[in-house]
């Protein structure tokens, strides 16, 4: 499973990032609260390249370099194939950042750990997909 982003219909509005942030860190999708009270940290990133905007997100690769290269065993795959970070274990060495061919895993400098898409595994349909106003994001197998 992964989210695929079609540049053809990506508006670059940035709602994916906003809802992504709100869905994590215990904010349960409450955009207002995380932006007013918390520290919104979106996992997936909207890139603005010359050819247009697109959401840079995790491919949950079959042979995930981040899992294999993680020095602490913090990056794991759950039974549904979702690659996620176990924050109890991540020490913030950024090996995974260096290894991700998609440039998706990124530093969470404040906590000395890393951020990556977990397909909102605790809540169902990924928040970015659910909230993309133009169907430019799709969850595929």
């Amino acid at each position: 499973m992964k989210v695929v982003a079609w540049t053809e219909y990506c508006l670059g509005c940035g709602l994916c990032e906003i809802y992504c942030a709100a869905q994590h860190d215990g904010y349960n999708g409450n955009v207002l609260k995380i932006f007013k009270k918390g520290r919104p940290m979106h996992r997936s990133r909207l890139l603005k390249a010359e050819q247009g905007t697109w959401l840079n997100t995790c491919m949950h690769c079959t042979h995930a370099p981040c899992i294999n290269g993680c020095i602490s065993g913090a990056i794991k795959r759950d039974p549904n194939g979702i690659v996620y970070v176990d924050y109890e274990r991540c020490v913030g060495c950024y090996s995974c950042v260096m290894l991700c061919p998609h440039g998706h895993v990124r530093p969470w400098s404040e906590r000395h750990q890393v951020l990556k898409c977990d397909l909102c595994r605790d809540t169902g349909l990924p928040s970015c997909v659910a909230n993309c106003p133009n169907g430019a994001l799709q969850l595929v197998d």
Partner: peptide, 24 residues
């Protein structure tokens, strides 16, 4: 920045991931 990363790279990656990101 990632946004400025040469597009040829992303194109190749997309091809390998077997998704045409440009066309629905």
């Amino acid at each position: 920045t990632l946004s400025a990363f040469p597009d040829v790279y992303w194109q190749k990656l997309r091809k390998e991931a077997n998704y045409d990101y440009n066309k629905c």
